[in-house]
């Protein structure tokens, strides 16, 4: 039995080592630990307060994107937000591309915590040619927004 564990440990250590070395050398490598103020994939994270401040001061030049499903979006979203669900970025992007390209800052949110859809949409937007420096992720998402007693808009946003 000892034999089994020894070999397993060797494979585990070798695998991890190769992974770490490859990640360090590869151009597509990621940081070992995500920084405090960024998401795991490196997007700037914004708190609810920051989002509120931006919406107040620079309303004309920012676009807030809701990355949840259209059904969830219809049940309530941040006022003025547009819906780009992570499952269908392609079609929804076409609908809003002029607005997105003009924006100085795009803030993407979903259901808060590590819901992941916001990061998904954010990375898809960057693939579509929007500079990464203009994209941020609202870390608390809609629950954080509601918790701070902010207004909510209903309907499909049209």
């Amino acid at each position: 039995m000892k034999h089994y564990f020894g070999q397993a440990l060797i494979i585990l250590v070798l695998g991890s080592l190769f992974g770490l070395v490859y990640n360090a050398l590869s151009p597509s490598g990621i940081p070992l630990f995500a920084a405090q103020d960024t998401t795991v994939t490196g997007f700037k994270m914004m708190t609810t307060d920051e989002v509120m401040l931006y919406m107040k001061e620079k309303k004309a030049s920012i676009v807030v994107v809701d990355a949840r499903s259209p059904e969830e979006f219809g049940l309530g979203h941040i006022p003025g937000a547009i819906n780009i669900p992570d499952t269908d970025v392609e079609n929804y992007y076409k609908k809003y591309q002029d607005k997105l390209k003009r924006a100085e800052l795009i803030i993407v949110y979903c259901s808060g915590g590590s819901c992941g859809s916001s990061e998904e949409v954010a990375s898809q937007l960057i693939k579509k040619g929007i500079p990464a420096s203009r994209v941020a992720v609202h870390q608390d998402g809609l629950p954080g927004w509601i918790k701070a007693k902010n207004p909510i808009e209903f309907g499909d946003g049209k």
Binding site: I11, L12, G15, S16, F18, G19, L20, Y22, N23, S26, S28, G29, I30, P31, L32, F33, A34, T39, V40, T41, G42, G113, S114, C115, G116, S117, E119, E120, S123
Partner: peptide, 29 residues
């Protein structure tokens, strides 16, 4: 690895500091 890290966050199971390490090592293991 970026896409995989994103997939791991979707599970909403691991703490943030562990996600990238998992994404880097698990495929090689």
């Amino acid at each position: 690895p970026k896409g995989f890290a994103l997939d791991i966050t979707h599970y909403d199971f691991f703490p943030k500091f562990a996600v990238n390490i998992i994404a880097i090592t698990v495929p090689w293991i």
